[in-house]
Each structure stands twice: as structure tokens, then as C-alpha cells.
């Protein structure tokens, strides 16, 4: 179910602007990969190319190869909609659908796609997804209340439940805890730990403790200056990255001597 992602010679553009240059990397299945780096170095941009969400922005495109299960998702004829069904995404800001109840938010991937589910299998899916996102106990009595009525941390877990309800193979998370308090953050970190049994997870974070707590491997992106493209400098076991990185730039960044 979980799949490795092979990225080869990936260049990512916003119109004429080359935002990320020449990334070649393999992201391991059933593990958590954290991406760290200074603001503006292209972490979000790179992450969004992994499920073809990047091209949603007008003028944005990517060149190169991203292989999931040996299939290049940028090959001609590949439908980005199918890619996104296999590679789910959790955003920095919780974004539940304001017109939907908690239950409908979890079922959004099914309902918005006009698929039919029997009442009982829908109930099952709602419960298992909310349990998977550690939210079931908190909301089981108010599933029909609006999703926007939850706290920020609950909303973010609702978004995670919504993402896992479509049963993807890979889950991308862009700073999922940046708007949350430490307790909700811990809840989500625990969740990430459990989820890596089933999914390949890629998470962008600015919090190095978080990266070291949740991830198996860590990748470091940086830019050499404004207007220059971002590069993946180094990626390795998290343990090694934080104790004994190969590159001087990584060491400087991790020890706070950046810039």
C-alpha cells in the first residue's frame, strides 16, 4: 500500500521563475521524511509537486520525473486527479469545508466525487478515519455539527481524517502543526508515528525538534540568495543529520548559524 517516491532531475517553476532546481531523491515507503530549511527555499513548492498540486497555481509547472510505484506522475496522459487520489495532502492552515458537517467533511473525498456509499460503510469509514486521526472520542457525539465549529487543532485533525478517508498511499503535510498549540502538536506527532505503518509520509516543518521527533529521514533545502532557486543540499537518516551532517551548510543551519 505505501509506496516509495523516486524523484529525478526535478525543476520547478512559477512562470519564468525557477523556484527549485535539480532535485534527485528517493523517499522511502512506510517512513516519515521531514523537509527542513529556511523560509522561501522551496519546501512547500517541492512538496506540492509530489501530488501535482503545484500546477494548480496559474503559470506554475514542473519538469523532470516523479515516480510512484515505478510510474512517472508527470508522464503525458497521467491524470492529476488520479495522482491526488493516491497522494493525499494536509495543509498548513486547517481548511475544513465550511458548508459541511464533521461527518460530511470526513466523507468529502467520497461525496464530492459523486460516489455512493451505503449508510453502514459510510459510518464505518467515518469512525475509522476519525479514530485514525485521534479525533473520534472528541467529536463522536456531534458528527452532524459544522466542521468549522471545532478548535484549530481539532480542525487540523479533521483535515487529516479527511485525507486518510480516501485511502491514499502517500500523505504530504505542509507545516501541519504551525497553527497549533503544543498539546495538539503532540497529538498530531503521535498520529504521524502511528500513520507511518500504513503510509509514506512527507512532512515540511520549521521545528527541528519536531523533525527529530517524528521523522526517520530528514532533507535539508536551502537557497544561496533571493531570486536564486532552492536546492536539496542533503538528505539522510534523521539521527545522522542532526548529529553529524555531511554538509557544512546543514550543520550551520541546524546549529542556528544560518545567514
Amino acid at each position: 500500500m505505501a509506496q516509495a517516491i523516486n524523484v529525478e532531475d526535478l525543476n520547478i517553476f512559477y512562470g519564468d521563475f525557477l523556484a527549485v532546481e535539480d532535485v534527485t531523491v528517493t523517499l522511502q515507503p512506510r517512513s516519515v521524511t521531514a523537509l527542513i530549511g529556511p523560509s522561501g527555499c522551496g519546501k512547500s513548492t517541492f512538496l506540492r509537486t509530489l501530488n501535482r498540486m503545484h500546477e494548480v497555481i496559474p503559470g506554475a509547472y514542473a519538469q523532470g520525473k516523479v515516480e510512484i510505484e515505478g510510474q512517472d506522475i508527470y508522464a503525458p496522459g497521467v491524470d492529476p486527479v488520479n495522482v491526488r487520489r493516491r497522494v493525499g495532502m494536509v495543509f498548513q492552515k486547517p481548511n475544513p469545508f465550511p458548508t459541511m458537517s464533521i461527518r460530511d467533511n470526513v466523507l468529502a473525498g467520497v461525496k464530492l466525487n459523486n460516489k455512493r456509499l451505503s449508510r453502514s460503510s459510510a459510518d464505518e469509514l467515518v469512525e475509522s478515519s476519525l479514530r485514525g486521526a485521534n479525533l473520534w472520542e472528541e467529536v463522536k457525539d456531534r458528527l452532524d455539527k459544522p466542521g468549522m465549529g471545532l478548535s484549530g487543532g481539532q480542525q487540523q485533525r479533521l483535515c487529516i481524517a479527511r485525507a486518510i478517508a480516501v485511502k491514499p498511499e502517500v500523505i504530504l503535510m505542509d507545516e501541519p502543526c504551525s497553527a497549533l498549540d503544543p498539546i495538539s502538536t503532540l497529538a498530531i506527532e503521535d498520529l504521524i508515528h502511528e500513520m507511518k505503518q500504513d503510509f509514506t509520509i512527507v512532512i515540511v516543518t520549521h521545528n527541528m525538534q519536531q523533525a527529530s521527533r517524528v521523522s526517520d529521514r530528514t532533507g535539508f533545502f536551502t537557497i544561496s540568495g533571493t531570486g536564486k532557486p532552492g536546492h536539496l543540499i542533503e538528505i539522510d537518516e534523521t539521527e545522522k543529520m542532526f548529529t553529524n551532517p555531511t554538509e557544512k551548510q546543514t550543520e550551520d543551519y541546524i546549529s542556528g548559524r544560518f545567514g
Binding site: N51, M53, V56, V81, N82, V83, R84, R85, R86, G88, M89, F91, K93, N95, P96, F97, P98, T99, A108, G109, K111, L112, N113, N114, C159, R162, A163, V166
Partner: peptide, 27 residues
């Protein structure tokens, strides 16, 4: 309608036209 809502739907593998009908218009 915030771009995040469209992206949330795209991220669930919802095609563009369904996103427009069921998320953008509905909101």
C-alpha cells in the same frame, strides 16, 4: 471563495468541475 477550499478538494482527488459545482458554487 478561498483558494484553500479549492485546494482541499483537489487534494482529495476531486476533479475541477466537481470542485466548482460542489465546493465553489455551494460555498
Amino acid at each position: 471563495v478561498p483558494m484553500e477550499l479549492r485546494e482541499a478538494a483537489f487534494g482529495l482527488g476531486v476533479p475541477k468541475w466537481l470542485t466548482i459545482v460542489k465546493v465553489v458554487l455551494r460555498t
